[in-house]
Amino acid sequence: MKRTDINIPSEVLRRVYETMLRVRKIEERVAELVSKKEIKCPVHLYIGQEAVATGVCANLQRDDYVFSTHRSHGHYIAKGGNIKSLMAELYGKETGCSRGRGGSMHLASPEVGLPGSSAIVAGTIPLAVGAALAFSIQKRNAVSVVFFGDGAVNEGTFYESLNFASLKKLPVIFICENNLYSTHMPISDCLANTDIYKKADIFNMPGIRIDGNGVVEIYKAAKEAVDNARKGGGPILIECMTYRWRGHVGPNDDIDKGLRSQEELDCWMNRCPIKRLEKNLLKDGILSESERIQVYKEIEKEVEDALLFAKESPYPDPNEDKFYNGVFKS
């Protein structure tokens, strides 16, 4: 695919910056709450990877679909999910986006085009293909995006999905967030060929690798991919090189467990996607220092409001009838 140079409007850059910051602030707060055992469900934090979800989703319409994984907070927020409902879900409350039934790994917000997140590795990859199949049958102009990790590339359904999407020229954007680890295992212990983007080639579809910490680059690549898929140009695999600052699950960093090094983490923290964009926005006069402070304040308040909402919300009713009521649509 030919890469064109796209000029990103200032207001888009501002919006992208705010979204990344919102993801970061929520995640940092959630990390504290997990440490304090206020949030009890298993939480996989997205800190460090914010640019990927943000840069991709900034190109999507509300009725485009996004499918997510166990590490779903960033995708949910970037697609426009309500953060009060997110926080309430983490607290296991009835007002949560999944009514307290799913927890952190199972966020959904169908009204903004997020029909679910699966904690089964690679579980949503074929679902995204199926949604795209539906869009093509319906002659809708929508695209289907699936986020998944480098670990998911080890499941057979990943390859089957690429093949089927390419065969039928479906409007699917496969976004692989390569954060170099799958639970406790570095990618080199999992994949015989760690160039994930090259796996597209065998299925006759484009595959590219980009800097997953550069939101502008991600935005541009995603824009091209989305425009192309909307026009019937078929699927693409985009591998975004990034890093999670926290451990696989929970607020710690997994350095204590001997799974990775402080130097590696420091190196990636120096490449913070948010700081990087912020510096450029300040330099280019798109954001002033006082506006920056204002944005921080507003987002911090949003987060505290969401937290208050979650805390004050009621728990689900554990009465047995209520259980059965939820199993089938009536």
């Binding site: 009890k40 469900c41 879900e89 296991g92 409350k93 999944s98 307290g100 039934r101 799913g102 927890g103 199972h106 728990y315 689900p316 554990p318 009465n319 047995e320 259980f323 059965y324 939820g326 199993v327």
Partner: peptide, 16 residues
């Protein structure tokens, strides 16, 4: 177990 997928919320787990 009830014929229901496992819930997240601890109040539901307790009943489940």
């Amino acid at each position: 177990l009830l014929d229901v997928p496992a819930p997240a919320s601890s109040v539901l787990e307790k009943a489940y």
